[in-house]
Write a protein that binds this DNA or RNA. Structure first.
Length: 1005
RNA sequence: AGGCGCGUAGCUCAGUUGGCAGAGCGCCUCCCUUACAAGGAGGAGGUCGGCGGUUCAAGUCCGCCCGUGCCUACCA
């Protein structure tokens, strides 16, 4: 007997979210054989979590908690993504607000600023995840730019490079003139725009006429080095081979290879030109258009760049140099028009490529970039096969098709970015022989060399350093795990092999100075370190692998952020070291993510996972919907329509948030979210709380010890147990199929509509039973004992079903279930999440009781409907008479239930209907209420008249159906039977309704 | 231009292999009955986007159309 008071979500959630993290119950040091592993899609450290993250984390957590309760050793690895351009963009914007410019600040200072920002974002995200109640293993937390990951990235790069899968070259890429970097094809957003198509005349060299070309970007004409037509195009066949005078250009242009290019350009034939578009003649600007680039290559044309990285016209643009591309367009068009060379201008709808990050119109540019040859069979074929053969399963499965379609048309992946924040490409160009040296710590034997090299390559120390600086860094707290030092982090996550080696900062100092020891020099061994006596600094010497030169210059480009993300499912387990974790936890069991990053991320993990690990990165990929706002718009900060999950947690609680997201997650459908939804499911949490409150209030302290003295269960006990079992079966099945919405609905339905609405109400009959004081002493004592025995049974059933229900619901609403569960006298563990997940038990399914109770509910509902129609308030108990056929036994068996739940004074059998009464019925159970004052008969007449016309309508269509010979002969027998039975029931009902109406009308008169 | 998805109650959505249209929220009526007014009881509300086809029977299968959203694409 205790009262837990009212539901307070904040209090409940704060209590457990902290406790779960601090007690480390979701941290698994050594996973058992039967394990379930997954890695979180690392959120970007660009700010805080949005609703999409909350959904993503919730779904994973539901699966994790479920699997854990199924007895699996669950390892869920959390972490964060450094998110190259995105983070750089965010920090850049913040600096701009302070009036600072990234370009003025310089690379090194800027990166420092980013490192100052990152923990701010990371901590806020981590706090959000904790508040959501995610059961991740925080001890395994990783960052895509932590020391170990950076090392893994270098290893991966080296392998791919040495195996010929990474190459560098001059290619056409999409260039963002604002972010000043190349982008991969995937990062280009195409937007339909209303543009113009300009028709420009290019005069023939011999003055015999002109050719008109059509273009959307007239400013690129300054870089034209040919005009192309289709070889079969009769209009131009005769002109092929002749030359045209490029208008406006009366200066010498310099091609990318350094040669001078004149303004007379050839007419060439190429089958890639589509004769039906524009005039059938196309100007060729090999340096500023992807197709022109291809054509330029195959025809050996000169590549003339006319713009710089800011998309301003350069020196090749002659008098237009220095103009922005759009200003240049205006000037060029004006001059062409004055010369009479602008034939016409048409409106033209076309797709424009924009930067996915800043929406700037991209400029196709030729530049030197690094590419990963994903089209190589070694990558492409495996990554295709594993999905084709369903080794990796997409859920819903239609995403597999989309994945495969994309894989079909794979183009090489541009992996270099001209930004500052990210993994610097581990290539050192030799200034003397031009050799591209890829260094990793494999190039060094001694563990301290490896350490120093990694610090250097990560930019943690400068080229010139002192041992003290190194020691300081190694002893400083690790970014990801502040309770560890950087050195500890290395030992735990990167140098597993040397775990036992006594690595420490002091011996490192000794080591470096020993390396400089004269004896070492005498042995002729090349020194790794060079000492600068003036500055008292050391240098770690890298030498060109080909010519031995020390004049090396590290590549300034960084890698596309998705390159490191692609290593995530094995990088987090310590790869490239063959750690226990890697062996035990890879491949992971599940990946949960949104469809927007299937190509960016999922595909790349499959490609690099199968390539490096020779095994798939995950077995199931659950693709969830995108969260949109009420209007179906994508939620984004720039649109300002985001619902912050933290606000929702604050207002309605994480449990309500999670349950709402889960129940709205239909496979393959977007989620339109409005705040009202959360409110509704907070009510559900409240309902559950109050059920718990009721049960706890009504448990006798000695219940557990008195269980053996309980009475046999009543049908309603068997009914609720049976219903629970069916619910457990459906919830387990739904979870196994990732049908989150289905599982949540089942739980909601069971808890509210069955357990609370009916079972708790039934339970009150026995809980509140009192002995009849008027009975003689002896009889009263016997009755007391019976009451006590009944109480034990009903309390035990309440407790039993409620306890299991909490467990069944726990993955969805971890906090409230944890809190209530721990209050139960049966709680035997520190957390409900460590108990077993309820499984259906066939021995606990009681069909007969279920049928009885369903019928009982119908009868009670029918009486209530009559009361409601007559506006009889609940406090007024009424006397009822009834007549019944088969239902009679049931009515007698459940008389107290009916009296109580239908709020009756009495229910007596009557052979004929009493005079002057109103009536109702449910199947063969008819009941009559003698009329007294205050009863509104006309309401009832309306109600039954309406029902009568409904019944007649149904009867008509049924009779028609049953008189259709085709139906009788072709439909399955059971279907015909069902229709016949239906007909019979409806006929009976019609009769009853008519009788009732007659009675009512009698009362009226 | 191709590909995918969606149009069911006022709103958000379920509807499994074709067999009498469902839920939540909102709305209406009655009720503060000792777990819960964040509640209880009862109710109203739908030509399942349109047209055609297959079938005894179509929200469900097929075709076309309309509306809508997304993804992919080098049409200058």
């Amino acid at each position: 007997m205790k009262d837990i008071g009212q539901y307070n979500h904040k209090q409940v959630e704060e209590k457990h979210s902290k406790r779960w993290v601090e007690s480390g119950i979701y941290s698994v040091e050594k996973p058992s054989e039967s394990r379930f592993s997954l890695v979180i899609p690392p959120p970007n450290v660009t700010g805080s979590l949005h609703m999409g993250h909350a959904l993503n984390a919730t779904l994973q957590d539901i699966v994790c908690r479920w699997q854990r309760m199924l007895g699996k050793s669950v390892v869920w690895v959390p972490g964060f993504d450094h998110a190259g351009i995105a983070t750089q963009y965010v920090v850049d914007r913040r600096l701009q607000e302070e009036g600072l410019s990234r370009l003025e600040l310089g690379r090194e200072e800027f990166i420092k600023k980013v490192w100052e920002w990152v923990p701010v974002s990371r901590n806020s995200i981590r706090e959000q995840l904790e508040k959501l109640g995610v059961s991740v293993d925080w001890k395994r937390e990783r960052f895509t730019l932590d020391e170990g990951f950076s090392r893994a990235v270098r290893y991966a790069f080296r392998r791919l490079y040495e195996e010929g899968l990474i190459y560098r070259g001059e290619y056409m890429v999409s260039w963002c003139p604002k972010d000043l970097t190349a982008l991969s094809d995937l990062e280009v957003e195409h937007e339909e725009e209303e543009g113009k198509l300009y028709y420009i005349r290019y005069p023939l060299e011999d003055g015999s006429g002109y050719i008109t070309v059509a273009t959307t970007r007239p400013e690129t004409m300054l870089g034209d080095t040919a005009v192309a037509v289709h070889p079969e195009d009769e209009r131009y066949k005769a002109l092929v081979g002749k030359r045209l005078r490029l208008p406006l250009v009366d200066w010498q242009r310099r091609a990318m290879d350094g040669s001078e290019v004149e303004h007379l350009i050839p007419i060439i034939a190429d089958p890639r030109v589509k004769p039906e578009f524009g005039t059938g003649a196309v100007k060729i600007t090999p340096a500023h258009d992807p197709l022109d680039f291809e054509i330029g290559k195959s025809h050996g044309l000169a590549f003339v760049q006319v713009m710089d990285n800011f998309a301003k016209m350069n020196e090749n643009a002659g008098r237009f140099a220095g103009l922005d591309r759009y200003k240049a367009r205006e000037s060029i068009l004006k001059e062409l028009e004055e010369l009479g060379l602008l034939e016409k201008v048409e409106n033209h709808r076309h797709a424009v490529g924009k930067c996915y990050r800043c929406k700037t119109v991209l400029e196709p540019m030729v530049s030197t970039q690094w590419f990963l040859k994903v089209s190589d069979p070694r990558i492409k074929e495996t990554a295709t096969r594993v999905v084709k053969e369903s080794l990796i399963k997409f859920v819903p499965e239609n995403w597999a098709k989309i994945y495969l379609q994309w894989m079909e048309n794979l183009k090489d992946w541009c992996i270099s970015r001209q930004i500052w924040w990210g993994h610097r490409i581990p290539v050192w160009h030799c200034q003397d022989c031009g050799y591209e040296n890829v260094f990793t710590d494999e190039d060094f034997d001694r563990v301290y060399d490896k350490l120093i090299f990694n610090l250097l390559a990560d930019g943690k120390i400068k080229e010139e350093f002192t041992p003290e600086e190194v020691a300081d860094i190694l002893n400083s707290p690790s970014f990801v795990h502040p309770q560890m030092t950087v050195l500890d982090f290395y030992k735990r996550f990167a140098f597993h092999k040397y775990h036992s080696t006594s690595l420490d900062a002091n011996s490192l100092r000794l080591f470096i100075s020993q390396d400089l020891n004269p004896t070492a020099i005498l042995t002729g061994k090349a020194q790794r370190y060079r000492y600068n006596p003036q500055k008292k600094t050391y240098r770690f010497v890298l030498r060109c692998k080909r010519c031995g030169s020390e004049r090396l210059h590290q590549e300034t480009d960084v890698l596309d952020t998705w390159f490191s993300s692609a290593l995530w499912p094995f990088g987090v387990f310590g790869w490239p070291e063959q750690t226990q974790d890697l062996k035990g936890l890879y491949p992971t069991d599940l990946l949960v993510t949104g469809f927007d990053i299937i190509f960016f991320w999922v595909a790349r993990m499959v490609m690099l996972g199968t390539y490096f690990m020779k095994d798939i990165p995950f077995r199931d990929v659950y693709i969830h919907a995108l969260i949109r706002d009420e209007k179906g718009q994508k939620m984004s900060k720039t649109k300002g329509n985001v619902i912050d999950p933290l606000d929702i947690v604050e207002k309605y609680g994480a449990d309500a948030l999670r349950f709402t997201l889960a129940i709205l997650t239909q496979q393959g459908r977007d989620i339109r979210l409005s705040e009202k939804r959360f409110e509704g499911y907070k009510h559900f949490a409240n309902k559950l709380w109050n059920a718990g409150r009721f049960i706890l209030m009504n448990l006798d302290p000695d219940l557990l010890t008195s269980l053996p003295y309980g009475a046999p269960p009543r049908p309603e006990d068997l009914w609720i147990i049976s219903r629970f079992n069916k619910t457990a079966e459906r919830v387990n099945k739904a979870l196994a199929e990732y049908e989150f919405s289905e599982a949540a609905r089942e739980l909601y339905e069971f808890i509210w509509s069955e357990f609370c609405d009916w079972y708790i109400e039934f339970s009150k009959l026995r809980l509140y039973a009192k002995p009849d004081e008027s009975l003689p002493e002896e009889e009263r004592r016997a009755q007391e004992q019976r009451i006590k025995a009944e109480k034990i049974t009903v309390q035990a059933t309440l407790l039993n079903v409620f306890e299991k229900t909490l467990r069944l619901l726990h993955p969805f609403m971890p906090f409230i279930t944890e809190e209530l569960w721990r209050d139960l006298p049966t709680a035997h563990k520190e957390s409900i999440s460590l108990t077993e997940y309820p499984q259906p038990n066939p021995a606990e399914v009681h069909e007969e009781s279920e049928q009885k109770l369903e019928r009982l509910k119908e009868i009670i509902t029918a009486i209530r409907a009559l009361r409601s129609d007559l506006r009889i308030e609940p406090s007024r108990k009424i006397r009822l008479y009834y007549r019944a056929g088969e239902s009679k036994a049931l009515v007698e068996e459940f008389m107290p239930h009916i009296l109580s739940l239908a709020r009756l004074e009495s229910l007596q059998e009557a052979d004929t209907e009493p005079p002057n009464c109103v009536a109702g019925f449910s199947k063969d159970f008819e009941f009559f209420l003698p009329v007294d004052e205050g009863i509104r008969v006309e309401e009832l007449i309306n109600s039954y008249s309406k029902r009568l016309s409904e019944v007649e309508k149904s009867l008509q269509s049924l009779r028609q159906k049953l008189s259709n010979e085709n139906f009788l002969s072709k439909a399955p027998e059971e279907e015909v039977q069902r229709a016949r039975q239906n007909l019979q029931e409806l006929e009976e009902e019609k009769e009853k309704v008519e009788t009732l109406l007659r009675l009512l009308r009698g009362v009226m008169t």
